[in-house]
Amino acid sequence: MTLDWKIGGLALGLVFFAAVLLVKPIGVSTQFVILDGVLWDAVDPAVVTQTADGYTATNAYLAKSGGKYAKAVANPLNYSFVFVLAMLAGGAASVWQRGGVGPAERRVPELWRANFGDSPVKRYAAAFAGGFIVLYGARLAGGCTSGHMMSGMMQTAVSGYLFAAGAFAAAVPTALMLYKEEA
């Protein structure tokens, strides 16, 4: 079911190479901001506005770097946003093709269950809080595991090494504290 790490690692490396060969390095976390912007702009169309030479926004973050996020919010059918939607579809197709994830596992993952019990509410609360911290951190860092760690270190980017050092320095002690029972 799970590929041997040598085959899996080679396949993953080829995908990252194909991206930089054909278009640009892979990144994901920016698209959470773009989706937020799309939702926000749907509620309040005054958020993103077209200017003489592009787009701008009332929000300083969407307006930064010459309004490139504002532009993506105005035109969500762009490469980076469609890329993330395709990830969802590709992942779903792969899971379906190998027979799917079982109902108990979909409800509460087994390692979590072994350490914190079978309460879905507790698990979803933790996943929600985790998601909040992950995306706040990724936006502060300017990238996530894909953009900084994988694409960045692959390009010998100093920022990629800096990010990976921070991510593992926090993730390993946290996991050692949380997951004492094995499953």
Partner: peptide, 30 residues
């Protein structure tokens, strides 16, 4: 970049997902 990495690391361990893998896991019906 380092501070954000620290935050991401805590959330990654807690949730078991990073931005990209969370999207794929949603596709798996988790």
């Amino acid at each position: 970049v380092f501070a954000g990495g620290l935050l991401l690391g805590v959330g990654w361990a807690l949730a078991g997902y990073c931005p990209g893998t969370g999207v794929v896991a949603a596709g798996a019906g988790r």
